[in-house]
């Protein structure tokens, strides 16, 4: 059985709209229109034990809301989910001792305390035995290279250092499932790399199931064999991130450098012109016509340099983000 099962999960929030200005403020005292935002719409998926799955999506797509429901912080509006057989929002103590969530933008450490005291408090909160605590501590502090920072007050740590402490705090009780909400946000490239490397190693060693949200393609490409792309509350893609482009028409990009100036209209005969300045051109052509097209280009145009490339993944994802409606069709195609 899958360790995480989600069926038709929905979450909507009520909110009020208020126009600027004093007059409208007064109006709002007497009458407010309630609006409903559907943050998550009918999401269903399953995750197997030991998987690392990435959640990708623009701001406000519903990634964090989904994680909050899976960790029991929010009640769903409808639908159901189980994590390790527990219903998260029942908030059973046994369940809480088996998972953890790290939020990149919200510290779970105690700001006034030195890091090691904050961690020691977690030892008691999670009721970890002395022996387990010391072994985990040693190992994690070693792996993340923060041994000499443990007695520094949390508020004095740099963002990257704090993030490492957050990770230690969330792993001390050896959770079977970890939710990471933008763990690398705001970090420099080296720190990002270190945290990625650590997560990968940790997953391989302990077979911990990890769900991760991120805006950075590197995070997802490096860590996750499988990604869910969420847009406007719905899953629009489920699979390997490299295959995103297979969803779309099979297109290739031809990059040309020309010796002489060529009119745009002439190039239009070979494919769709994506970029053009007279000498450097990007052409989008159908994969099936690639051979004839290339031949024609090389024969007819004053070519200096000729390259055939895939459409970049980012562009494919961007197309997914922009796409409204007919979402179901795309998901079907992905399977």
């Amino acid at each position: 059985m899958a360790i995480i099962q989600v069926n038709n999960l929905c979450k909507s929030f009520n909110y009020y709209k208020k126009e600027a200005g004093l007059k409208n403020s007064l109006k709002n005292l007497f009458y407010r229109k309630t609006l409903v935002k559907e943050a998550v719409k009918n999401i269903s998926f399953e995750i197997e034990e030991g998987e690392i799955v990435g959640f990708l999506g623009p701001n406000g797509a519903g990634k964090t809301t989904t994680l909050k429901m899976l960790s029991g912080i929010l009640y769903p509006t409808s639908g159901d989910a189980t994590v390790m057989g527990y219903v998260p929002w029942e908030r059973k103590k046994k369940f809480k001792r088996k998972f953890s969530i790290v939020m990149g933008q919200k510290s779970q450490l105690w700001w006034d305390l030195p890091a090691n005291e904050s961690l020691h408090l977690n030892k008691h909160i999670y009721e970890i035995s002395n022996k387990d605590y010391h072994t985990s501590m040693e190992e994690l502090a070693e792996l993340l290279d923060v041994k000499d920072l443990l007695n520094v007050q949390v508020r004095r740590l740099s963002l990257g250092e704090r993030m490492k402490m957050e990770l230690i705090a969330s792993l001390l009780h050896r959770p079977k499932v970890i939710f990471l909400d933008e763990p690398t946000i705001g970090l420099d490239i080296i720190s990002q790399k270190k945290i990625r490397k650590f997560m990968k190693y940790y997953n391989e060693q302990t077979k911990t199931t990890i769900i991760l949200t991120s805006h950075y393609m590197n995070d997802i490409e490096d860590l996750c064999k499988r990604s869910l792309i969420i847009n406007q509350g719905s899953i629009v893609f489920d699979g390997e991130i490299k295959k995103v482009n297979e969803l779309f028409e099979q297109k290739k990009i031809i990059k040309l450098q020309l010796e002489d100036y060529v009119e745009k209209d002439v190039l239009g005969g070979f494919g769709t012109v994506k970029q053009y300045d007279g000498y450097n051109v990007l052409l989008e052509v159908d994969k099936r016509e690639l051979k004839e097209c290339s031949k024609a280009i090389l024969d007819d145009l004053p070519v200096i340099d000729f390259n055939v490339e895939d459409i970049p993944i980012e562009e494919g994802i961007e197309l997914l983000y922009k796409k409204k409606g007919s979402v179901d069709r795309i998901v079907e195609k992905a399977y």
Partner: peptide
């Protein structure tokens, strides 16, 4: 949203 921290921990 500081409450979230207590909701996910066994406390």
């Amino acid at each position: 949203g500081g409450l979230s921290k207590y909701l996910v921990q066994p406390i």
